[in-house]
């Protein structure tokens, strides 16, 4: 295998089985790196590195303005400049709404009085653990912070392209999800076989098509009497279903005990290895399509 592969795992909503897929796939491969980019609710660590909070940690910061009230003449230029409305001029004082600020640095430049300095604010953290065959990183957004993208981008600078990379992306179709899957070779969407699952799946597929990202589907909690919901749709759209993880009490039990079922139930390791092979094949097909 010449070039290593990067795979992003995505779902329309949280709680669909993204963690299950990301963790079990990572554990059945060798020379692999798992990046948990679901920064609002990272929980891959529960299965990989339960005590990660005590491991190596790195702060993700950004710069926000700080107003020197002595120098400020309340000229209002910074407030009018800030297109994000992070500043307000109230009773001749400039108020900074730090969560709203996009750290563009513009207000500092337009201030004629040199009254604006920048200070660092922590947005979130990266944590790291190294296991036998698995290099694991997670990003976590601090509570109350709204900007996930900078944390995800910082996390992705840890990507080691000598390894197969699996990125557990935030669920949904908005900027953080897109930031996580950008530059990955292939996306696997996890869905449940329900009407709601199908609805969310379609939203995600629409987004992926828009950014021209190759993808295929895995059905989680598959059941023979409802899988047709997803299968019919995927067949009609020519979308590959790579795997079905059955609805099983055993799997659910293992999950709730933070045990990756690939290590607990015989046969699954090979199934996940086969899944990885299929993903490589699908991603390869896509490359050919591009070069033609």
């Amino acid at each position: 295998m010449a070039q290593q592969l990067s795979i992003s795992i995505l779902s329309g909503k949280g709680g669909t089985g993204k963690t299950t897929l990301a963790v079990n796939l990572a554990l059945s491969l060798t020379n692999v790196q798992l990046l948990d980019a679901d920064v609002e609710e990272p929980n891959d660590y529960l299965f990989i590195s339960p005590d990660i909070k005590n491991k190596e940690e790195e702060s993700v910061r950004r710069l926000i303005p700080e107003i020197d009230a002595e120098k400020c003449t309340a000229c209002r230029r910074c407030v009018d400049f800030c297109q994000y409305n992070a500043l307000a001029l109230i009773l001749d004082n400039v108020l900074v709404f730090e969560e709203v600020c996009h750290s563009c640095g513009g207000c500092k430049i337009v201030c004629p009085e040199n009254a604006i300095k920048e200070k660092a604010r922590e947005l979130g953290k990266l944590r790291h653990d190294k296991r036998k065959n698995l290099d694991f990183w997670e990003g976590e957004l601090n509570t109350g912070e709204e900007k996930a993208v900078p944390v995800i981008e910082k996390l992705k600078t840890k990507a080691d392209h000598n390894k197969n990379i699996i990125i557990d992306a935030p669920p949904g179709t908005s900027c953080p999800s897109i930031a996580a899957i950008t530059d990955t070779d292939f996306t696997v969407i996890v869905t449940e076989a329900t009407i709601f699952g199908l609805h969310d799946l379609k939203m995600v597929i629409e987004m992926l098509n828009e950014i021209k990202q190759p993808f295929a589907v895995v059905i989680n909690k598959a059941e023979s009497d409802s899988d047709f919901l997803i299968e019919d749709y995927c067949n009609s759209e020519g979308i590959e279903i790579l795997m079905k993880i059955p609805f099983s009490r055993k799997i659910a039990e293992l999950y709730s005990n933070a045990l990756p079922f690939v290590k607990e139930i015989a046969g699954w390791e090979n199934k996940f290895k086969a899944l990885a092979a299929k993903i490589i094949e699908e991603a390869g097909k896509n490359e050919r399509n591009y070069s033609n």
Binding site: Q83, N85, A86, A88, I90, F97
Partner: peptide, 15 residues
């Protein structure tokens, strides 16, 4: 119609 900080901007307007 501000995509960011509409509440802050509306408050500024009231001020």
């Amino acid at each position: 119609n501000q995509s960011s900080g509409a509440g802050v901007a509306a408050a500024q307007l009231c001020v």
